[in-house]
């Protein structure tokens, strides 16, 4: 059945294929357009460089009026990523705009990797290390980059 959400997700997918942003990719799962798998490559010149981080994106019929639920499947050590992979990012919560599409979501998460917001921490250890011990922070991030090759 075609609903506004499904129609819009087909458009999002088409755009992502025709005009893919650097360093991210995503596609609906085989049998359900409401659940997507995505990959974000760690941005260059950050400790996340070379990492391949997998995510799932779950949409409801209210998309794009409401944001999807986005979660890292790969382990990510980051001030704004919860232990269960949930992401604390304003555009996925109170700053969501229906004008965002999958491409915009993935590129925003990609830039969150480069620029954490330690003032709204989802992982307090990561936030503290990011602020106080950048070397140790980078070490822990690099460990999850290594881990992302295996996952």
């Amino acid at each position: 059945m075609s609903t506004p959400a499904r129609r819009r997700l087909m458009r999002d997918f088409k755009r992502l294929q025709e005009d893919p942003p650097t360093g991210v990719s995503g596609a609906p799962t085989d049998n359900n357009i409401m659940i997507w798998n995505a990959v974000i490559f760690g941005p260059h010149d950050t400790p996340f460089e070379d990492g391949t981080f997998k995510l799932t994106i779950e949409f409801t019929e209210e998309y794009p009026n409401k944001p999807p639920t986005v979660r890292f499947v790969s382990k990510v050590f980051h001030p704004n990523v919860y232990a269960d992979g949930g992401i604390c990012l304003d555009i996925l919560q109170n700053r969501w705009s229906p004008t965002y599409d999958v491409s915009a979501i993935l590129t925003s998460i990609q830039s969150l990797l480069s620029d954490p917001n330690p003032n709204s921490p989802a992982n307090s250890t990561a936030a503290q290390l990011y602020k106080e011990n950048r070397r140790e922070y980078e070490k822990r991030v690099k460990a999850c980059v290594e881990q992302s090759f295996i996952d």
């Binding site: 919860y82 269960d84 949930g86 919560q93 709204s120 989802a122 307090s124």
Partner: peptide, 12 residues
């Protein structure tokens, strides 16, 4: 955004 002082995504 509200600063979270906990580590639990479930509350949201």
């Amino acid at each position: 955004m509200e600063p979270f002082t906990h580590n639990d995504g479930n509350r949201d």
